[in-house]
Design a protein around this nucleic acid. Sequence first.
DNA 1: CATAACGTGTACCATATACTACACAGTATG
DNA 2: CATACTGTGTAGTATATGGTACACGTTATG
Lengths: 122, 122
Amino acid sequence: MVHVMNDSFGQFIHDKRLQLLETDKSFSLRQVAQRIGIQPSYLSKIERGEQTHLSEQKIVALAKELDEDPDVLLALNGKISEDIRAIIRQRPQLFAQLIRELKNMPDHAVLRLVREVRDGDW
Amino acid sequence: MVHVMNDSFGQFIHDKRLQLLETDKSFSLRQVAQRIGIQPSYLSKIERGEQTHLSEQKIVALAKELDEDPDVLLALNGKISEDIRAIIRQRPQLFAQLIRELKNMPDHAVLRLVREVRDGDW
DNA sequence: CATAACGTGTACCATATACTACACAGTATG
DNA sequence: CATACTGTGTAGTATATGGTACACGTTATG
C-alpha cells in the first residue's frame, strides 16, 4: 500500500476470529487460513500487522468466514471492491461529482438518497 | 493493470495532443512529455498502447495540459482518483450501497441527485 | 546544409503487491 | 506419552506498476 494504512485491518480480523473461536474451535488461525486459501504464516503476519497486503478475492472469502461486510473489510485494507470501481469508471465525471458532493454529508442524508433511489419515488 | 483495459487511453490522448498541435507547436510529444515529467519514449509507448501504466499524478498533469477532465482520463486508464477512493473508504457500506443502486440509473437521474445535494433542498 | 527538434526502439530498473514453502517450538488431546 | 494441532519465523518468489537512459534515423528550420 502506498497511501497511509493504519493497520486496523489485522487487529480487526484477529479480534473477530478470536471471538468466533470462543464458541467454535474451527476458527483457529490455521483452519481459517486454509478455508480462505492462504498459508497460515501469511494470515498470522496479517493479523499482527507485519504484512498488510491481501487480495480482494481473499478478503471477500475472509469476510464470508467471519460474517463481516466485505466492503468494510476491503476498506480497512485500503481497497474498494472491483465492481464499485467498474461502476465509477463507466461514468467517471458523474460519480466523481456526486461522491465529492456527498463527502461531508451526514450518514442519514446519504441514506435518504439511497432510499429515494431504491424506492424509485421519482 | 490486471483487469481488462481496452487502450482507448493512448488513442484518446494521442488524438487530443495532435489536435492541439495543429494550432500550437508546443504540443509535440517531446514537449508534452517534458512538461508532465516523463521521458518522451515512455509517452510515445503510452500513446501507441505499447505501454498502459501511468501514475495518477502524471495523468492529472496530462489532463491539465490537454485541457481534459482528470477523472475521465483516469477512468480511461482504469483508475479512480485517490480523493474519491478515500471518501468511499471512510464510509464503505454507505457508498457501496448507493453506488450499486445507481449502477443502472440514467445520467439525468444521477444528475438530479447531484443537484438535490448541491442545492441542499432538504 | 548544418543542426535542432522530432518520434521511437532497446535495454534496463526500482518498488509494490500478493503470495508460498517449510521448519520450529509450544500446547492440547486420545 | 505420542501425536496432532497451534501460531510464528525465515527465506524466497512471481507478477504488476511505473518508470529511466540513451541511441537512432527522420524531418524541419535558420
